[in-house]
């Protein structure tokens, strides 16, 4: 039942063959058009998989592109336009999620990972130095010694 429903929903979405940004949509004012393109690149096409409305050829994406342009022409700021779309579809449409509590782990995470990795590397070298100067560690085998050891180990196992 559900599989069938998903199929239908997919069909509902896959309508007419239109292509991303059509000439008829393009604004005459190049500055405004440039702003529209930038905004479109950051807005997710809600019926597609991880595509921006600027790249998508879905009809709903086209209508959203037109809406973005109409609002810009009407004098909205970039932020106003984005806020309007977010107020309709939620923050899901922002391809760059805003920094807030729910996304703190996402934004801070990579930095934490880098710092942790650096700390681990520093700890590795510290431990190595301690081991080397403390004399608790056996010195490394010479190549020749190791070869002989390998040969012995091998014989041992066969």
């Amino acid at each position: 039942m559900f599989r069938w429903l998903v199929l239908i929903l997919a069909l509902a979405v896959a309508d007419g063959p239109a292509m991303a940004v059509n000439p008829s949509e393009v604004l005459a004012d190049p500055l405004l058009e440039k702003r529209a393109r930038e905004i479109s690149k950051g807005l997710r096409c809600v019926v597609c998989q991880n595509q921006s409305i600027d790249d998508s050829d879905a009809t709903l994406a086209r209508d959203l592109r037109v809406l973005v342009r109409e609002r810009l022409v009407a004098g909205d700021s970039d932020q106003d336009v984005v806020d309007y779309v977010v107020s309709r579809y939620g923050e899901f449409v922002l391809l760059k999620p805003p920094f807030k509590f729910a996304t703190a782990v996402l934004w801070v995470g990579p930095a934490v990972i880098v710092l942790a990795a650096l700390a681990a590397m520093a700890a590795f070298f510290r431990r190595q130095r301690r081991g080397a100067t403390g004399g608790a560690r056996p010195t490394a085998l010479s190549d020749d010694e190791r070869r002989r050891l390998d040969a012995l180990m091998k014989d041992d196992r066969t």
Partner: peptide, 24 residues
């Protein structure tokens, strides 16, 4: 990995839907 799984993980804790796209 964090960026790819984050929408799923956030949804799991009831944190709502987000998208993580190329800008991130």
């Amino acid at each position: 990995l964090l960026g790819t799984l984050y929408p799923l993980l956030l949804d799991a804790v009831g944190g709502g839907k987000v998208s993580v796209g190329p800008p991130f």
